[in-house]
Design a protein around this nucleic acid. Sequence first.
DNA 1: CATGACGGTATCCTTTTCGACACTATGGGC
DNA 2: GCCCATAGTGTCGAAAAGGATACCGTCATG
Lengths: 123, 123
Amino acid sequence: MARTRHRSLDCSPGCAVEATLQLIDGKWKGVILYHLLAEAPEPEGALRFNAFRRRMPNVTQRMLTNQLRELESDGLVHRTVYAEVPPRVEYRLTERGRSLEPVIRALKAWGDAHAAMAPEVAA
Amino acid sequence: MARTRHRSLDCSPGCAVEATLQLIDGKWKGVILYHLLAEAPEPEGALRFNAFRRRMPNVTQRMLTNQLRELESDGLVHRTVYAEVPPRVEYRLTERGRSLEPVIRALKAWGDAHAAMAPEVAA
DNA sequence: CATGACGGTATCCTTTTCGACACTATGGGC
DNA sequence: GCCCATAGTGTCGAAAAGGATACCGTCATG
């Protein structure tokens, strides 16, 4: 279902912007990354599958799996499976993922500052 | 064709991230904003329709119109039509649009730093 | 007269994304 | 025996996004 993005890389200089954008677009990735950056409990910040679900009640399992898998295959999060009896899977940011922090924070800051989504509401 | 985004605003705290993201996703908006921020010639930085087309040869007219209209209706760019004989239309950032500069710069910086899109290429 | 630049529209179609819903295996608690 | 939790997968279908192509009116140029 996914991974048709990353197709051309043809745009001239604003390309870098688009490239970054392509990694974090997709409806839930921003929030996932934000939660991993800001809300993960332990210092190395891991979250489990259902921890995400509790934080984002409107995401279906399928979508959550999907977005996490895409983030993983983009090298932004790492997935650790513990072969335990109640299955346990932890997600944490990779170095590459953590390096997105300024981006996420900029997005968050702007969203907070221009609180609403519609300009007329903000005005 | 557009404007079904901005639907719920239901997510908890990472919401601001998503909200910002929704304004600048869409295949070409990042590049458009980048060009307006970085490449527009005059101090107040206006670009004309075909100036965009020259900078982004792979965008169809329809898509360009579309993305510009969405940016306009999100209050990020302003569209000025000069009732002249060869029609002239200029696009420039609004205040709100200019306030996205840190975001765009963060996106650009990350994209430049982690140059390629695929992690294995970057590594 | 034909062509091109300007700034778009209109129409059609394909791809991509998203959501709903059901289903899986395992083990523990009641 | 039944239901809960864990972390998913599979299938279906609707909707949205995006691309291809053709067309519009005006004026200047060749």
